[in-house]
Design a protein around this nucleic acid. Sequence first.
RNA 1: GAGCUCGUAGCUCAGCGGCAGAGCGUUCGAUUCACAUUCGAAAGGCCGAUGGUUCAAAUCCAUCCGAGCUCACCA
Length: 772
Amino acid sequence: MDKKFIPSQVEERIYEFWEENSLLKAKNGKPFTILMPPPNANASLHAGHGMYTVEDILIRYKRLRGFSSLWIPGTDHAGFETQYVYEKHLAKQGKSRFDFNRQTLYDNISKFVKDNSGLIYSQFRKLGFLADWKRSVFTLDKNVLETVLGTFTKMEKEGYIYKDEYIVNYCTHCGTSLSELETVHVERKDPLYYLKYGPFVLATVRPETKFGDTAVAVHPKDRRYKKWVGKEIEVKGLLGRFKIKVIEDEMVDMKFGTGVVKITPAHDPNDFEAGKRHGLEVKRIINIDGRLNELTGPYVGLKVKQARMKVVEDLKIKGLIEKIDENYAHSVTVCYKCGRDLEPTIIPNWFIKVKELKKPVIGVIEKEKIKFFPKRYKKQILQWLKVMHDWPISRQIAWGIRIPVWYLVKDNENKIWISFIDKNREFKKGTIGQYLDKSHSLSEIKQGLQQVTVPIYKREKVKYVVSVKEPQDGQDWIQETDTFDTWFSSGQWPLVTLSKEEYKTRFPTDVMGTLADILPFWVSRMVMFSLYVKKEIPFKNVYLWSKVVDSKGQKMSKSKGNVINPIDLVNRYGADAFRASLIFGTGSGGNVPLAEEKVIGMRNFANKIWNIGRFIWMNRSVILSETKDLLRMRDSNKLRDSSAKPQNDIEKALKNLQKEFAEEKKKYLRFMDSYKFSQALGLVYEFLWRRFADYYIEELKSRLNTLGLTPRIGSELKEELRTGKIRVLDELQNVYFENLKMLHPFIPFVTEAVWKVFKGENSSILLERLKS
RNA sequence: GAGCUCGUAGCUCAGCGGCAGAGCGUUCGAUUCACAUUCGAAAGGCCGAUGGUUCAAAUCCAUCCGAGCUCACCA
């Protein structure tokens, strides 16, 4: 054995051993199953992925406890995220997604993902993860598509899916709508404009939307404006005079501004709701490219911000601005990805009605059929479920699972809007009828297709069918271009990962471990889909781990320059040290600070484990080789008298050691079974280092020394004590071995390396059992 | 506005009714000994504040102060 444990010399070999000897696969026993949260297929390992260690700990622990533990990995296509990355990549080449038709864009991204995937699995291997890589599932695999499309079809048939023109947060830069959860609210100061509006003055931060106003609202209790309610007022505006209705609505805050609000249903979520309540016209004046449209007269084509400046300027000239509050602080909704202001926009979207679907979810969580660790997340998810509203599942991006809806072309030529690149590589946009008439064939359109938009028509709806393949009925159909929100497919992760056989024995799975951040996005939806499709919970326990932050508790980000590359740490200090540093001394929830000093500390711990083994190994080998001699000299009476007392002391110490160990183990099992990994590791750390090494070994050494013995090599070993010493080492060794097993889930490499020293190259601690 | 969490050693945080703890850092000391990636020792604390429950409170309850997160709203 080397003086030091050198991870880089053994880790790779050990991992290969596990892999070659099928130790990554499930063995016989009672099933224990974890589905790995799928990282983005094109991702590379970041510090946060290190927390997957928690799942590896469970897998290894359960294996040692005799379970048939199975960890199934996978990767996610991560629609929006990936397309975003890819578009940045395109931008570097001076291109954009609009230069390609949909299919080509999809194929290019697909290739991009393939080229960049696989990296993260090799990094996971470096961390020692005992997952069955051969079983990896990708969220665009055939069987996943079947399930996901099947669920959609079922939901549509049963009335849980509807299409609606709804106001959604739309990022004009990223070109897609976002769910509420994908938005970020930031506090900001913007000018608040007080506009003269007929007989009123009203305050707004968005004067450029005034062309879309279809009412003015006041509070029902506001006496100041009572006489106007229900009447039309005449307003002088930038485009001339117009009449507008005054309505009353509780949403108005009498104290804010002048107590009068303009209602712009097409461009504000609250106004949209108000518009619904009062049956107002939805007048859209900003297109989805973020520019004002022809209804705004001279402002057509301007982007929102430019338009605002121009409108304000013109209003000033006309004397229509009373005052401007330059320091108005409010919060703005921005894109979580690019940080730009979101434009509340009306676009046709596919929705899932969640009112009925979420009821059983709340039920199983309240009844604790699914348990949360730490417990407080139960409250959080329940709170979130209560406010959960219908889920928009359409995304206007190419990289994803295309929604299996086909629109009938016939009779709808003027209702289906398309954009495509024609055979002369020209970009075309308009209704499908416009082009079919002009010698563009449907197949040409389909080939160059970028986007299909079918607005909601109240009277004559556009006929569509839900079908995975194009309907073969001789009629012309064109498929929806929207794709599913990534969470729609990853929400079905527990439904696509196991084999048919395994659904009988391994479902519900045992533990779902994930970052607390995605509790609402992912966990609640997995439960929802599972209860809907399988009438069964998808997992029994949810373990929420914490965010990995830097040593000062700051979130890691490139701009702050505090990003720590985990592989770097692994290369320098070993996978064990990295893993343990994420677990040791960390609490439940919040953040896990990752500091190099801590990794070093854990490296030292791994080395300590190694050296305790080395001590036992060196002395044991000596004894074994000399046992014969020693036995022959048993009757020697030399030192007999003086040996009596220390011998008894050693016996006593051993008894204490056994007692302490029994207590340690009992506690350990309790901690492990209640997912208190940090405490379990801390316990063994304390026991092995502070008690076993610093106290018992040191004590024994010094007592042997008082007899003129050093527990060292060959000739220096005095025979008189051998009987006692053999026992000493035997007992030390057993306690040590048990502790190796207990530590193995946390620091698999060093424990396995030591094991192999004692039991041979072909042995593995993973084949051992940790008994109660 | 609502909910949740956290204030414990210089730093990062465990502990969550029964002697105030760990890692890192600091100071002093040891060294042919399994390990200097080591060992021994020390300094460092009104456990955010106040009140309550209790034989006993860092721990439970209430209020307050401070920090953070999430959700909702904001013309």
